[in-house]
Simulated scan of single mutants.
Amino acid sequence: MEFLAYGVLADERALLQEAVRAEFGTAHTVRPLDVFLNRDTVPTAAGYDTVLTGVNDELDAEVLRALAAGGTRFVAQRSTGFNNIDLDAARDHGIAVARVAHYSPYSVAEFAWTLALAVNRRVVRSAIRTRDFDFRLDGLLGRDFHGRTAGVLGTGKIGAAFARIAHGFGMRLLGSDVRQSPQCLALGMEYVSPDRLFAESDLLSLHAPLLPETHHVVDAAALARMKDDAVLVNSSRGGLIDTDALVETLRAGRLDGVGLDVYEEEAGVFHHDKSLEVMTDDTLARLMTFSNVIVSSHQAYFTKDAVGQIMAATAANVADHLAGRAGENFLVA
């Protein structure tokens, strides 16, 4: 049997094929496509029992209806997030869905720190200057994170890994989550209300899932509570931040820096080449104008270690489907 994989990036292709070979040998193969799944491309899935998707694929009711009509019975999502999939529609059309619940938390935690340090020490601005042989230090003044307060919103595996790095920097740790992490408590983390977290953090990093109760958890009111010179990092889900409110906060000259690896309207933009097009998203365009903001293209997970684990888990999910098992990663069995 051949599986069809949508939105496979160039650096992912070999890792995906290797994972399928490791799981199935020569019994099954995968056909990687660089196009994303949507209403225009869904006809290409006709005849495929199993399709592999990512966070930038569109699996709404119409796409799922077309998949089912073409014979698809299983969607294997190559990510932890699945807010791009209409699970109710999948269930109605008899399509099982699985995701990758866990992969290297260090990939995302380390990248969150990459953003925090790059913003704080003005690394991008400095690199651009030195390319033009401008070696002045004007406007590049940062500050020590040592001795300051790191706030972690969401202290699961990734949040805990972020906190361990913060502890290594010698930072005071604050956390907010519905469940307290024993690992974070052992580091000396104090769990506080979201209001205190926003108010007291010098560095606030978001590691919460996107749920109805966390949508725009960082809204205008939360941003107003933050210190004027705080650093905000989001490597989790774009919808955690009200981006319009963030733009207004930055326009007011508040926040020392912002590092965003995700954006609430990133679908159809991130992981695409838009360099020859007019940017029609005014909010994203305005974000790019702030010299203290770094926007990366949802790449925090993008290490050989993490992607390899994601591909291996995806192949294992496919094996469960073919064997008639509903593994722990299944969202719709």
Rank of each mutant, 00 (worst) to 15 (best):
V217I: 15
D195V: 15
D219P: 01
S193C: 05
R225K: 15
F198N: 09
R196Q: 15
V217R: 08
S235T: 15
R196V: 10
P212W: 09
S193A: 15
S201E: 01
R237S: 02
L223C: 07
L211A: 11
H216D: 07
L203A: 08
A221N: 13
S236Y: 04
V192N: 04
L223Y: 04
P209S: 11
A222G: 02
H216E: 09
A220M: 05
V217A: 00
L210K: 10
S236R: 03
L210G: 10
T214F: 00
L206P: 01
H215W: 12
R196T: 14
P209C: 09
S236C: 08
A221S: 12
G238S: 04
V217G: 00
D219T: 09
S193E: 11
V192A: 06
P209K: 14
N234G: 01
H215K: 11
L204A: 08
D202K: 12
Y191P: 07
A208N: 09
M226H: 06
D229W: 04
S201R: 12
D195A: 15
M226F: 05
A224Q: 10
E200G: 02
E213N: 11
S236W: 02
D195G: 12
R196F: 01
L206M: 10
H207G: 01
H215N: 09
F198S: 09
H207W: 05
A199K: 12
L210Y: 07
V231G: 04
A224T: 10
Y191H: 13
D229P: 00
S201K: 05
H215C: 07
S193I: 12
A222Q: 01
P209H: 12
A208M: 11
H215A: 13
L232H: 06
Y191M: 14
A224L: 05
E190T: 14
H215P: 01
F198W: 15
A199P: 03
R196G: 13
A220S: 13
L197A: 12
V233F: 00
P194D: 03
T214A: 04
V217E: 01
N234T: 03
L206I: 12
A222K: 01
R225P: 00
H215E: 11
L232V: 06
R237H: 08
V217W: 00
E213R: 14
Y191T: 15
E200I: 03
H215M: 05
S205R: 05
N234C: 09
H207N: 09
E200S: 03
L203T: 13
A199N: 10
E190K: 14
D229H: 11
V231R: 01
R196S: 11
D195E: 15
L206E: 00
T214W: 00
H216Y: 05
S193Y: 05
